[in-house]
C-alpha cells in the first residue's frame, strides 16, 4: 500500500466521503437495526423492544424452519449443480466459438437476464401450466398432460433459468484467459478432447469454477420470487418464510433472526471458498 500524504490525503477523503456516507446510511445502519431487532420482541403493531433475548434464534432451530433451511440449501445446491452441468459446456463452446458466434451465444444468455424477472417467471408459468405449451405439445403426440407448475420441478427449472448467467459469465471469463497452448499441448501428447477437458482444463480453471459456483449458489439460496410463483405448498424457500414474518405475521424480530441465519450461511459458503483458495496458495508455496 502506498502512503497517502498531503494534498492526496484531502483528495482521498473527498472521494471517499460520498460512498462512505452512502454505505453507512443505507447499508450499515439499516442492517444494524435489523440485527438489533433479531434480539428483541414485538410490542404492538410497529414497536420492537430490543431486550437481548435469544428466543428468536432458538425458534430458528424449530424443525419446521430447519426443514425449510435444509430444503433451501438442497434447492440452491441442485440449481447450482444443474447450472454447472449446462453452463460449463456452454462456456466452453463460447470460448472456442468464432467472434460472431460468441456474440450470439452471449446474447442468448444476456437477453433473458435483461428482461424483468417477474415477466420471465410468468412466461415460464405459461409454458409449464397444465394447459401450457409443453403439455399442448405433448398432448398432440398423445402424452400427458403432466402437472409441472407448482412442483419442486418447476422451482428448480425456474431457478436454473434465472441463475444460468451467474455461472456462464464467470466461467467464460476464466476459460477465455486459459492459455490455449495448454490444450494444444495435451492434444499433441495424444490426449483426446474429453481427457483434455477433465485432466487439463478443469484442474487448471478449478478456482474459477469454485467462484462461479458460489456466485450462483448465493443468490439461488435467497431466491424469493421464483419459488413463490412457480412452487407448490411444499416448495417454499427460506426467503418466502422471511417475507411472511415481516409482512403477514408482523414479527420483525423473528424475520430478522431468520434473515441473519441466511446471511451466516452465505458467509460460511464464502469462508469455505476463501479457505479453498488459501489451501491452493499454500500447496503452491510448498
Amino acid at each position: 500500500m502506498t502512503r497517502i500524504t498531503g494534498g492526496s490525503r484531502a483528495a482521498f477523503w473527498a472521494l471517499f466521503a460520498a460512498p462512505a456516507v452512502w454505505m453507512t446510511a443505507f447499508f450499515v445502519v439499516p442492517l444494524s437495526v435489523i440485527w438489533a431487532y433479531s434480539f428483541g420482541r414485538t410490542l404492538g403493531l410497529t414497536q420492537v423492544d430490543v431486550t437481548g433475548t435469544l428466543a428468536n434464534y432458538a425458534r430458528v432451530f424449530d424443525p419446521v424452519y430447519l426443514w425449510i433451511f435444509a430444503k433451501s440449501l438442497v434447492f440452491a445446491g441442485a440449481t447450482t449443480a444443474i447450472c454447472l452441468v449446462i453452463g460449463f459446456p456452454y462456456a466452453l463452446v463460447m470460448t472456442f466459438a468464432s467472434n460472431r458466434a460468441k456474440i450470439g451465444l452471449l446474447l442468448a444468455i444476456m437477453l433473458p437476464f435483461w428482461t424483468n424477472l417477474l415477466v420471465r417467471t410468468y412466461a415460464l408459468m405459461a409454458v409449464m401450466r397444465t394447459e401450457g405449451w409443453i403439455n399442448d405439445g405433448l398432448g398432440a403426440v398423445g402424452l400427458g398432460p403432466f402437472e409441472m407448475l407448482h412442483t419442486n420441478f418447476a422451482v428448480i427449472t425456474g431457478l436454473v433459468y434465472v441463475h444460468l448467467p451467474f455461472i456462464v459469465l464467470p466461467l467464460f471469463s476464466t476459460l477465455d484467459r486459459l492459455d490455449r497452448s495448454l490444450i494444444e499441448a495435451s492434444l499433441d501428447l495424444g490426449a483426446g478432447h474429453l481427457r483434455t477437458i477433465f485432466q487439463v482444463v478443469i484442474p487448471i480453471v478449478w478456482p474459477g469454477i469454485l467462484s462461479a459456483l458460489l456466485l450462483c449458489f448465493i443468490p439461488a439460496l435467497g431466491s424469493y420470487l421464483t419459488p413463490d410463483l412457480l412452487g407448490g405448498t411444499d416448495s417454499q424457500m427460506i426467503a418466502s418464510v422471511i417475507e411472511r414474518q415481516f409482512k403477514r405475521a408482523n414479527d420483525w424480530p423473528f424475520g430478522a433472526a431468520l434473515s441473519f441465519m441466511l446471511m451466516y450461511l452465505t458467509l460460511a459458503a464464502m469462508a469455505w471458498r476463501a479457505l479453498a483458495e488459501r489451501r491452493a496458495v499454500l500447496r503452491k508455496a510448498r
Binding site: 492459455d179 494444444e184 495435451s186
Partner: peptide
C-alpha cells in the same frame, strides 16, 4: 493426438 510428432510450444505450455 494421432500424429507421430510432438511439439515444444513457445510458451512451453507446461501443465
Amino acid at each position: 493426438n494421432r500424429r507421430p510428432v510432438n511439439m515444444v510450444f513457445q510458451s512451453y505450455a507446461v501443465f
